[in-house]
Design a protein around this nucleic acid. Structure first.
Length: 650
DNA sequence: TTAGGGTTAG
């Protein structure tokens, strides 16, 4: 006679499908089907990993068994729900619940919420929520946590927060779940607030904050959280390395990796992928080769992700042959492998190799197509980019934002207005959201083609106007000579309160002032950027100001500006000053500047030419002679030529 | 029973 304890003993020793069938036969014959508890033991085994190995369709099998059980308990039903989830069949859960032969218990609803989360179906999720409350489980912390996760997975962060706020009990899972909800939604502000209030910060919480800050470009904040963390694990280290890497701080990324090694941490796949990416960014092949060795010693050399990172590294560090060797040796390749290899060829100018590989790539995704499109643009085959784009559409692909931006930039490069308009038409037809990135590239394109109205129309359509968008308009208007309109847009931008002017904004307004010779306005903008916006002027800003005030005859002011530059002035800046001296006949400053320049770089063709011009225009022939005398023969030509020209004409 | 973290291609 089969008893429950005997059944358990049989099951734990069950190693073959045949044996399992025998157990089932005995189970039915002995009438244990009537025993809800005994049935649940058998169901549990059937849906376990061991059972799944012995049964071809464990879930079907379990469902059939459940139908035979005379009065199943909630545990049996929950077991099957769990199995459906584990086997990636969450859509079976709600129908199972609808025809559930037992009264649901506290364990049932968290499983149903998890099923809705997996399906991303907020509507069904809400129904589960209200059923659970109606059955009296509303205060159960397990249920509340599962509901928070469900709402977050369905993109309803506010609902997740509502469940969190209702409490009245919170455990570590509640805190981690609500933090994860904000991290998933990319809401940095709320994530910071939750993180600050957390009773204890798990390594997972720290890792996800570091990663979130990293994705948002807030490297200092990430580093602070990392430094202050009480606990770190492999995830935390990987997040910190990746944060530096994705923000272009490759040396720092490698530094963190070296600290990690010093502290004796073993390396894992994700860490090495980020480290190899950092080597790629730093473009030092030597580092990468060291990593390649390290990866093999750590036994990670055959991991697909690691191989992909290596393919990307070699092809970016100009060794496409090594990259291709890895690509060909890979046992399994995925989109990353193909796209990295194609991008590598394009980066190294091997357009034909890229095209050949692209043509045999099995299922090209958006990244593959846009790699080819932007690769054509980079290799001066912008018109080819349009063909690729047309092919992409013909293959039934729906281009994403990045692809569209690549195509639009091809139009901008070629000033191809007609093509640009047709891309815009496509965007309208398929009702793409005009985001900042897409809007900005359209505005750039129209501005470059001189279609100001179209550019401004796009600007009006952008929902959340960010700084880049305003900049495209301000710079574009200035470029097209509409100085007043450009400066008006700057005032509007300041008044909007949604965008803050940055370096590029001031490059735009200063060059507008320069074009129109608006000295006083230029001076005010130059002060404004430093005082109000705390922007340190760059070399272009200084160049603009020197030219602006110099042209207007304020030669001494221009000289003062040059002297106050924190970086060494470039040729355009010196040129602007010298031509101001020349134009306004300030030989005193001219001479001073000239001597300084010859001191700095006596062999600079550009400087020599400008100086000669000034001396010659002032009739200072002795100076011209001295200057020529001091020149090395191989650089004298340019300056000599212009002096001769000038002396003939004067 | 519930939740959670890092990784590469345009």
């Amino acid at each position: 006679m089969l008893t429950v304890s005997l059944l358990d003993a049989h099951l734990s020793g069950c190693r073959s499908a045949r044996h399992l069938l025998q157990i089932h036969a005995q189970f039915v014959a002995s009438g244990l089907l009537a025993d809800a508890f005994a049935s649940s033991r058998l169901l549990l085994f059937n849906t376990s990993a061991a059972g799944a190995r012995l049964l071809p369709r464990p879930l079907d099998h379990s469902l059939r068994l459940l139908r035979l059980v005379r009065s199943p308990n909630a545990f049996s039903c929950n077991t099957i729900l769990k199995a459906a989830l584990r086997h990636g069949l969450p859509h079976l859960c709600l129908p199972l619940y609808a025809f559930m032969p037992a009264l649901p218990d506290a364990y049932t609803y968290p499983l149903l919420a998890a099923a809705c989360a997996a399906r991303g179906d907020a509507g069904e999720g809400r129904q589960v929520h209200s059923h659970a409350v109606r059955h009296g489980f509303g205060g159960n912390v397990y249920l509340r946590n599962a509901l928070m996760h469900m709402y977050s997975a369905c993109g309803c962060v506010a609902d997740a927060r509502r469940v969190f706020d209702e409490g009245p009990v919170w455990d570590a899972v509640s805190w981690n779940t609500i933090l994860a909800a904000y991290v998933r939604a990319g809401d940095v502000g709320q994530a910071i607030r939750v993180f600050a209030r957390m009773p204890e910060r798990s390594a997972a919480a720290v890792s996800s904050m570091v990663a979130l800050f990293g994705r948002s470009g807030m490297v200092d904040e990430a580093k602070r959280v990392f430094d202050e963390a009480e606990r770190r694990d492999a995830f935390t280290w990987a997040a910190m390395i990746s944060c530096f890497e994705r923000n272009g701080q490759f040396v720092e990324a490698l530094g963190v990796f070296s600290d990690m090694r010093d502290e004796g941490w073993p390396v894992d796949e994700a860490v090495m992928v980020s480290v190899i990416a950092a080597c790629t960014g730093s473009e030092v092949l030597w580092n990468g080769e060291v990593c390649h060795g390290l990866v093999f010693r750590a036994g990670l050399g055959l991991r697909l992700n690691v191989q992909n990172a290596l393919i990307h590294m070699y092809s970016s560090c100009v060794d496409v042959v090594a990259a291709r060797r890895l690509f060909d040796s890979g046992e399994s390749l995925d989109h990353f492998s193909w796209n990295s290899m194609i991008a590598g060829y394009l980066k190294n100018g091997c357009v034909e190799d890229a095209k050949a590989l692209f043509s045999i790539m099995p299922d090209k995704d958006n990244v593959s197509w846009s790699t080819m499109i932007s690769g054509c643009v980079q290799n001066n085959q912008s018109s080819e980019a349009f063909t690729v784009f047309d092919n992409m559409k013909a293959h039934g692909m729906r281009p994403d934002e990045v692809t569209l931006v690549s195509v639009i930039s091809a139009c901008t490069n070629l000033s191809a207005l007609e093509q640009g308009k047709s891309v815009h038409e496509y965007i309208r037809e398929y009702q793409y959201n005009i985001t900042i990135v897409l809007g900005t590239s359209l505005i750039d394109m129209y501005m470059k083609c001189g279609c100001l109205d179209a550019a401004l129309e796009v600007f009006d359509m952008v929902q959340e106007k960010g700084t880049p968008c305003w900049n495209a308009v301000i710079v574009g208007l200035a470029m097209n000579g509409l100085v007043t309109k450009s400066l008006d847009m700057f005032s509007e931008m300041e008044a909007s309160g949604t965008a803050v002017p940055n370096e590029i904004t001031f490059t735009g307004v200063l060059s507008a002032c320069r074009h129109a010779g608006l000295v006083e306005e230029g001076r005010q903008f130059f002060k404004l950027m430093q005082n109000k916006y705390q922007i340190v002027p760059n070399i272009r800003h200084y160049g603009c100001m020197v030219d602006l005030v110099g042209r207007a005859g304020y030669v001494r002011e221009a000289e003062d500006l040059i002297q106050s530059m924190p970086m060494s002035p470039d040729v355009p800046a010196w040129g602007a000053l010298l031509s101001a001296c020349w134009k306004h006949g300030d030989s005193e400053v001219g001479e001073r500047v000239g001597r300084k320049l010859v001191e700095l770089d006596p062999h600079h063709d550009g400087f020599q030419t400008m100086l000669s011009n000034i001396y010659a225009s002032e009739g200072m022939w002795q100076c011209v002679k001295d200057l020529r005398g001091s020149m090395k023969q191989h650089v004298a030509k340019a300056a000599g030529y212009s002096v001769v020209e000038l002396s003939h004409s004067s």
